[in-house]
Every structure is written in structure tokens, then in C-alpha cells.
Design a protein around this nucleic acid. Structure first.
Lengths: 149, 149
DNA sequence: ACCTATCAATTGATGCATCAATTAATATAA
DNA sequence: TTATATTAATTGATGCATCAATTGATAGGT
């Protein structure tokens, strides 16, 4: 019992920093291959998946800061991957949609992500992946339920 | 079998982005509590643990960019948490050591990290933590073995 | 109708990371 | 020994995220 606790502390001790590292490495790997960030893929993906949506909705889905989203979108609009127009019923909202170029870019990025995913996850069993997935969700909930003010 | 593959893809699909999110959340949680970054804790921790060391060694241990380390250290030196002096045998190397203030800061930060860790991980079994730990290591290896140039 | 609340989006300031180029010190080869 | 390589650290430019403050549009109370 005591041993278990000690072992566990050992395992856990660097867990957070390693999580942080692996997240960086993963992003960097994707960026090296795709010449764009994982976040942009997520943005394209969500706009495509859920159709015309406001920035606010995107922010909530991606759990990303509003200003970060604004900046990404402005750039992606300038690069003609997306279109933005004000909603006529409530002109505070910006409605987002993919252009054809955006669709093609999304396909390209998904292919890259999938190949990376296959390389990395192919060795693992479904059970392992599910368990890690649950772990991540758990941490996420714990942190958010703590309600840091 | 087919179902398993489909399930697995579903689980894996957002795994990378969720990993990225959870890493951000974790860092933010720590920063909110400690008013300093997890990286600074790691720096203090490694200098303390391995005694007087060069920046290069620190960079390798932390897997952090050299310039990021330089900037952290300069700031931490200015705040009197660490001391830096050139190695006399080879004046290219900067030798690092903790000051008393740095020691105290390290203790403070470790306490915060441990409380955060306890809150988040206490629900999990040792086996779960070990398995996640292995998963992270595996991803890390896979990515680094790919050798992106 | 008008003042005020609120809300979505934006802008500005800042922190932390990266890469590329530079500086300073040492090692190596002619 | 002197010119050249390499090496550790630094500086500069940039990307992506955050928070705080602001702008522009709408809703609600009087």
C-alpha cells in the first residue's frame, strides 16, 4: 500500500510536464508536415462539420479565446479559406462558412492529420486509446470544475 | 472488427486536439494558483535536483529551446532565484545554481503542483496513471523517431 | 423614446515558445 | 601559430495563446 503510493507519486510527478511536452511535440510534428497549425485544421473542420456558424459558437466548441479566434479567422479570410458575413437578424454575430479553397485545404489537412495519427496510434489497441481518452476528459473536467477565479 | 476500427477512429479523431487543450488547461490552472509558469518550476527543480549545471544540460533535460531557457534564466537571475556564472575551465558554459530565495520558491511551487496533482489524479488508480504515462512516452518516442527535418 | 445592460467581436499589451542569425569562446588542422 | 570549425549562449523576428479594455449592435426597463 505504502509502496503503491510512492510508486504512484513517482509516476505522476513529471506527468504534467510530460503532457505539456508531448502536446508541444505533437503540434510541432503536425505543423512541420502541414505548414499550418492544428488549430487552423480544427477551425476549418468545425465550420465544415456544423455548417454556417457564428464565431461565438466556434469559440465555445474549440474552447479557444475569442481574440485568438478573431485573429485566425481574419487571416483565413484574407487567405480566402473562409467567408465571414454579419448575420442580418443580429448584426453582432459573424457568420462563418468555408470557400471551395477552404474545403480543399481541409481535405489536405485531414489527410496529414490522419497519417500522423496512424503512425503514432497504430501500435496501440482500441482499449488503450479509449482509456487515455477518458483520462484526458477526466483531467479536463477536474480542472474546469475547480473553477479557478 | 470493422466496428472496432470505426470506434477507434472516433475515439482517436479529436484525441490530439484534446491533448493540446488539456495541456493548456493544466498550465493555466497551475499559473493561476502559482502566479508563475510550470516551466519555471521545472527549471528550478532540475537545477536543485542535479546541482550546479550548464544551460546546455538544462536544455537537454527540459527539451526546451535554448533561447527560451536563456530568457527564463535571465529573468530568474534578475529576480534573484538563481545565480549564473561562467565556468572557468570553459567560459562558454554558464553554470547555474539556486539561491536561498530560489530554494524557497521551489518549495512553494512544488506544494502547489502537488495539491493540483492530488486533486486531479486522486480519483485514478495507480494502474491508470502508469498506463497514461506509458502512452505519453510512446507518443513522444514515435514523434521524435519520425525525425522531422 | 432613451438610457443603460449586455453581448459579440475586436484591438492592444503581454507571455512563452519557436527558428534563424549572431556573438564569444574553444578546439582543430594547416 | 594562425586560420577555420565548432560549440554554448544570446539576440531578433515571429506565431499563437491569454487577459483587459474598447467598439458596435441589441435588448430591456422607465
Amino acid at each position: 500500500m505504502e509502496a503503491k503510493i510512492i510508486k504512484r507519486c513517482t509516476e505522476a510527478d513529471e506527468l504534467f510536464y510530460r503532457l505539456h511536452l508531448v502536446s508541444k511535440e505533437m503540434n510541432r510534428a503536425f505543423e512541420t508536415m502541414a505548414h499550418t497549425s492544428l488549430t487552423k485544421l480544427e477551425i476549418l473542420f468545425h465550420i465544415d462539420l456544423f455548417g454556417e456558424m457564428s464565431q461565438l459558437e466556434l469559440i465555445r466548441r474549440l474552447k479557444l479565446d475569442a481574440s485568438a479566434v478573431t485573429r485566425h479567422l481574419k487571416r483565413m479570410e484574407a487567405e480566402a479559406f473562409i467567408q465571414r458575413k454579419k448575420e442580418s437578424k443580429d448584426r453582432r454575430f459573424m457568420l462563418l462558412s468555408l470557400t471551395d479553397k477552404g474545403q480543399r485545404e481541409l481535405k489536405r489537412l485531414i489527410a496529414i492529420k490522419e497519417s500522423l495519427q496512424d503512425d503514432i496510434l497504430s501500435v496501440l489497441t482500441n482499449e488503450q486509446i479509449v482509456s487515455v481518452s477518458k483520462f484526458i476528459e477526466h483531467i479536463s473536467e477536474q480542472i474546469n470544475d475547480r473553477g479557478f477565479k
